[in-house]
Amino acid sequence: MGTKDREGFLKQFSVYALLICIGFIYLYPILHMISSSLMTLDDLLDSSIKWLPSSFNLENFRQAAASMDFWRALWQSVVLAGVPTICNLLSCSVIGYGLARFDFPGKKIVMAVIILSFVLPSQITMIPTYVLYSNLGIQNTIWAFVLPALFGQGFNAPIFILIFWQFFRQIPKVLIEASRIDGAGYFKSFYKVALPSAAPAFITVALFSFVWYWNESYLTELYVHGIYGDSSWTTLVIQLDNFSDNYSSYQQTATNAATNLNESINMAGTLLSILPLMILYFVLQRHFVESIDRTGITGE
């Protein structure tokens, strides 16, 4: 078991064995998806082939991308996730800073309402929100996501407000007071002093918000895409939800002979829908871990 200054073999072996088992549980579905997406129909029917395909069949990805209208859906997914995320950063940072730095009557009530709105399931407010968006004329448009985010009411905005609130509370008050003595106003103190030190909070909120907007399919289909496809806006997740119907339409209009829908093409379409997020995570992994550590988030 080792000593206080040096870890023993048994302890290290137990820790690494546990981490490997947990890592395998998380990686197994992804590895199976990658392996299956590269298989041909003969490989799927061959019981002797489990993990390694006889040949890498990239045609599955081409057909899946064509049926999903991949590039258009990818661009619209980035817009539908990115623009509300930027709005969340602007509104939630201002609200979190105000709650952290100013005392006003009813502040505790405001905090209680913010926490309650986070606990309240979105299904409860779904019908009133749908009616409100219809009356405002923003139904089936991107404004159904952008406008609420501008006012701090985006997807899971309360948790983002609490993240900024917690982070801005850690900034020494003497820095804000010193900027006020130098003649800076409230907004200049926020812009010049608070924001430059809040990079970890911004990275955390940006990643969480982008992923949540990207993965949201039901509310996107309800508010933006339209239940009956009334809008031209779509996302990769919606295209994946309707993958079977989309592939049938593609198969009927394809100039070349398209393969019948099988598990390999399904897995290829699934991999294409999560590939942008995987790339984003690997690029920002170091900054993401550091920001989580500095903002005090325990997990999601």
Rank of each mutant, 00 (worst) to 15 (best):
R101F: 09
Q239T: 06
Q285N: 13
D5V: 11
K107C: 07
I274A: 05
T85P: 02
S217I: 15
T255A: 09
I292W: 09
M267A: 08
T220M: 12
N140T: 07
I22S: 09
T125Q: 05
L147A: 12
R6V: 15
F104W: 07
I265P: 08
F102L: 13
S217N: 13
A112L: 12
L236V: 00
F160N: 01
V94Q: 08
I114L: 08
R180W: 00
Y97T: 01
P158E: 03
S122M: 06
I163Y: 00
M39C: 04
T270C: 03
V283H: 02
E290L: 10
Q139T: 14
T204G: 06
N140W: 13
F190G: 02
S67T: 03
W212Y: 14
L10F: 14
L99P: 01
F155K: 04
G96S: 05
F282V: 12
L41N: 11
S117E: 06
L99I: 09
Q252I: 13
P276A: 03
M68T: 07
S273D: 08
F24W: 15
M278I: 14
M68L: 13
L175W: 07
P196D: 05
I114A: 04
G2T: 02
I274G: 00
T234S: 15
N215G: 09
L38T: 07
Q285I: 04
N57S: 07
R294L: 13
Q170T: 10
G98N: 09
D182G: 14
P158L: 04
A112K: 02
I115S: 06
I279Y: 06
L272M: 14
I297H: 01
F61M: 01
D230V: 06
L150D: 06
Y213E: 10
F56Q: 00
T220H: 11
L27P: 08
S244K: 15
L90C: 13
G185E: 01
G269Y: 01
A268H: 02
Q76F: 05
N246F: 09
P172F: 02
Q12S: 15
M68D: 03
T125G: 11
L18F: 15
L52Y: 07
A258N: 04
L27C: 13
S93W: 06
I279D: 12
T255W: 09
W214T: 03
S291W: 10
L41E: 14
F243I: 02
A149S: 12
F145M: 12
S291D: 07
P148F: 05
A149G: 03
Y97M: 04
I20N: 08
L44I: 05
V113C: 09
T129P: 05
L116W: 05
L219T: 12
I30K: 03
Y16N: 11
K188L: 14
F160G: 00
N60E: 04
R72S: 13
S217T: 14
F187D: 08
K192G: 02
A254N: 05
L10I: 15
I142F: 12
L284I: 10
I109H: 01
G82R: 06
A149T: 01
I114K: 03
M111F: 10
G269R: 00
L236A: 01
Q239K: 10
R6M: 08
V283C: 06
